[in-house]
Write a protein that binds this DNA or RNA. Structure first.
Lengths: 131, 131
DNA sequence: ATGACTGCAAAGACTTTGCATCTTT
DNA sequence: AAAGATGCAAAGTCTTTGCAGTCAT
């Protein structure tokens, strides 16, 4: 990642784009954003590199939301709110993520990650419903 | 659901099969199980009814695990452990699910569900790694 | 008759993969 | 040369949908 030659330009751009995003984008969303600077970038490249970063633990997957996998460039444990109306995902850093991995460990499991997801309707979708 | 005539036999069977399962099965897994009693059941019927139950809040979806949506017949809030090795999902009833929905509500969101998922390796997969 | 449930096959949506090409070492 | 990264198009999975047939009211 320190390398910035042409060979890694796109890879770096994908990671950077995700890390600077607040929207917990999907591969497709990142692809659309990256196309502005790299018109010839391929969707496959975005998928490939996201999978790579995910496997390396550099980014995290939030799982499938509305049929599409969403990513987060911030691997620090924090809760997420997912709007079932519009698919928006927002961080809930203050919520913290309680370490309840003890029970799983007692069962002989190795816990590698704890994820907390709240689901519901965001402000926008709620007001949209009023109308 | 009270109706048990031929018309609802399969629908009831799908729900019952899920509710009596410990494995948090996918549509496909349920389909295979149900085929023993209903050889002519269709995978589409399983998908359709699971979506129905899910939308009615009778069951819950655990989201996509290993590319496949998994379901839980128990809607009482409880944490889950997901093994990234074999895809096993186990309940962690004692873990509880802390109500950290206050922060989301302060943001104007309506929280409808809180989900906690631990990911890691189960006992079996750990010992399999040793070998 | 009318509405509801189902099976089947087709369609859809998202993601992964094979292969040729181009870069860097 | 060899290894790695990418674009393109094809393939692969999982899930949904259209339609005709069947059952219940």
């Amino acid at each position: 990642m320190e390398r910035s030659g042409k060979q890694f330009r796109k890879r770096n751009a994908i990671l950077s784009c995700l890390q600077h995003s607040r929207s917990h984008p999907s591969a497709e969303t990142l692809y659309e954003a990256l196309r502005q600077e790299y018109p010839d970038i391929s969707l496959a490249t975005v998928y490939r590199n996201l999978a790579l970063f995910r496997d390396q633990g550099i980014i995290q997957s939030l799982g499938t939301i509305g049929g599409v996998e969403r990513f987060d460039g911030d691997t620090y444990p924090h809760a997420h709110f997912v709007c079932s109306g519009c698919g928006a995902v927002v961080d809930l850093p203050e919520a913290g993520v309680p370490d309840c991995s003890g029970i799983a460990r007692e069962m002989g499991c190795r816990v590698e990650r704890v994820q907390m997801i709240l689901t519901g309707l965001c402000t926008d979708c709620l007001s949209r419903k009023e109308e």
